[in-house]
Design a protein around this nucleic acid. Structure first.
Length: 508
RNA sequence: GCUCCGUUCGUCUAGCGGUUAGGACGCUAGGUUUUCAUCCUAGUAGCAGGGGUUCGAUUCCCCUACGGAGUACCA
């Protein structure tokens, strides 16, 4: 039973953008599949036409692609078990629903939505919850209560109906979850779920079981929100006679909101102060939500941090490439409890990846930003700057903040620094230093430093005071890498101009 | 309400009867740095509570509390 080929699926419904919890579910499925040399399928569960959202499918695929999660079989890739979109498989499901009716595991129900709504409301008034189950079904408008003639008459008249699962009475369903171990539920606490809707499409429960069976899925790895319906699913496998090939189940802990309570949901959008989506999302109604990609996260950093949310390798390694994740991944090291996402740690991850990436890689990204600002400089020069400042940045967009003074003459001077470093005699000192720098032959960092140092020493000035004031002139603030490196980069002429400008602009 | 799942520093987590309860993020301090940041070092802080079982419980069992999920002709 467990030595067949590993085949897993990620089965989102296209009801909007895929949030990071969904991406993590996809990732765990992918890691598990690749670890075991198996297949990763993408199946679109669009059996609820009313909730279909334009662009969602593309968004899902693009998100997986960005993350480096490669789909082996899916709506775009094709495969031997297609189609992979449930709306295109509608012909398949009815047969199995009928089979369940014939075998006595399911029945027709003619109750209208209004009737059931009324019953639920009445139940609520009596502080009870109406449940369509073995206690109530015999009194309702279905093929269990009605005679065969009555049922046939309704069916022939084209009356709309649903097909419900006939939950066994007082039966203990014993299940096993890879992450949680044994889970037992008594069927009396369950209801007769609708398997087949009046619109001719199956509900999630039926479609899911049928497709997983037909697609030869070996392991169902999904979010914990599905745990309560696992008994129904197991019972369905039994009723359809598929127990031999029933997949193993693993219910992943949920991703929780960092503040307050509840699971992370699509609707959280941008309210949380960090993106909940992998990519920027624009809904058909015009609503937008930010994405990790657009916020400046590296895909590999995003994948890395997601992987360690609810899973850990049992070692102290925290930085993983996808290959390393695949090698290290194991479902029995998945945590049982839900995890809150920490945006600070996410930034730390990105910072780690920033340091890991080559100057050339970062330069390519940074050059795009420079172009947007209308700045065009030699690539070699940009790369040199990037090499100097990248480890100070979390995101590529931070690099500008850390390096703008390489490309532009400061127009403002940080007030705090001015107050602290710009004394009565500073302008005169700066002017003197300017003359020294202007006279340096073979202008470079080492020579400039030598000249300035000698001059400071000769005059018995404080090295710190002069250097800080000089930095203010060159950078406009009290930040940045080695000052002489900056001076070399901007050149002798620009250095002189900046000092002159600072002396004339900064007022004491 | 009912059913199911869960509970170790603020957060992510290691721990699978005997540990000075470990790591990471964050925070604080010190060092490095002519500045800022990086970086390095150190510190900070935790087994939800109560019963058992046991020579011994963070670890096993029960109860309570708290958190989460589900309870649709949505997935």
């Amino acid at each position: 039973m467990s030595n067949r080929k590993v085949r897993v699926r990620f089965a989102p419904s296209p009801t909007g953008a895929l949030h990071m919890g969904g991406v993590r579910t996809a990732l765990f499925n992918y890691l598990f599949a690749k670890k075991h040399g198996g297949d990763f399928l993408l199946r679109i569960e669009d059996t609820d036409q009313t909730r279909f959202v334009e662009g969602a499918e593309e968004y899902i695929m693009e998100s997986l692609e960005w993350c480096g999660i490669k789909v082996d079989e899916g709506i775009r890739e094709g495969g031997a078990f297609g189609p992979y979109r449930q709306s295109e498989r509608r012909e398949i499901y009815k047969k199995y629903a009928d089979q369940l009716i014939e075998s006595g595991h399911a029945y027709y129900a003619f109750d209208t939505a209004e009737e059931l709504g009324a019953l639920r409301q009445k139940g609520e008034e009596n502080k009870e919850t109406f449940t369509y189950n073995n206690a109530t079904r015999v009194e309702l408008n279905n093929s269990l209560k009605l005679t065969k003639q009555e049922v046939d008459a309704k069916l022939n008249a084209g009356e709309s109906y649903v097909i419900r699962f006939k939950m066994p009475v007082n039966h203990e369903v014993k299940m096993n979850d890879i992450i949680r171990g044994n889970v037992n539920v008594n069927t009396d606490t369950l209801d007769d779920k609708v398997l087949f809707k009046s619109d001719g499409l199956p509900t999630y429960h039926l479609a899911n079981i049928v497709d997983d069976h037909l697609m030869e899925i070996s392991h169902v790895i999904r979010g914990e929100e599905w745990l309560p319906s696992m008994p129904l699913h197991v019972l369905l496998y039994e009723a359809l006679g598929w127990v031999d090939t029933m997949p193993e189940f693993a219910h992943l802990p949920l991703l929780l909101k960092p503040t307050g309570n509840g699971k992370l949901s699509k609707r959280d959008g941008d309210k949380l102060g960090f993106p909940v989506f992998p990519l920027f999302w624009k809904a058909p109604n015009g609503d937008t939500a930010s994405g990790y990609r657009e916020e400046g996260y590296f895909a590999d950093a995003f994948v890395n941090l997601l992987a360690l949310l609810g899973w850990n390798p049992g070692t102290e390694q925290e930085i993983f490439t996808m290959e390393e994740l695949i090698a290290a991944f194991s479902l029995d090291r998945v945590t049982k409890s839900g995890s809150k996402f920490d945006p600070k740690k996410a930034e730390w991850y990105n910072h780690q990846y920033m340091a890991l990436k080559t100057d050339a890689e970062i330069t390519n990204l940074f050059i795009v930003e420079l172009k947007e600002k209308g700045i065009e400089v030699e690539v070699a020069l940009v790369e040199k700057v990037v090499g100097m400042v990248k480890e100070r940045a979390v995101f590529v967009k931070d690099i500008w903040e850390q390096s703008s003074f390489f490309f532009e003459t400061p127009t403002e001077y940080d007030e705090k620094v001015v107050k602290k470093r710009w004394k009565e005699n500073t302008p005169a000192q700066m002017t003197a230093i300017k003359e020294v720098l202007a006279g340096v032959p073979n202008f470079n960092a080492a020579n400039a430093k030598q000249a300035v140092s000698d001059y400071i020493e000769k005059n018995e000035w404080g090295f710190g005071a002069i250097m800080n004031a000089l930095r203010l002139c060159i950078v406009g603030a009290g930040k940045g890498p080695d000052l002489f490196d900056i001076i070399e980069m901007i050149g002798q002429e620009e250095t002189v101009l900046r000092i002159e400008k600072a002396v004339s602009v900064i007022k004491k």
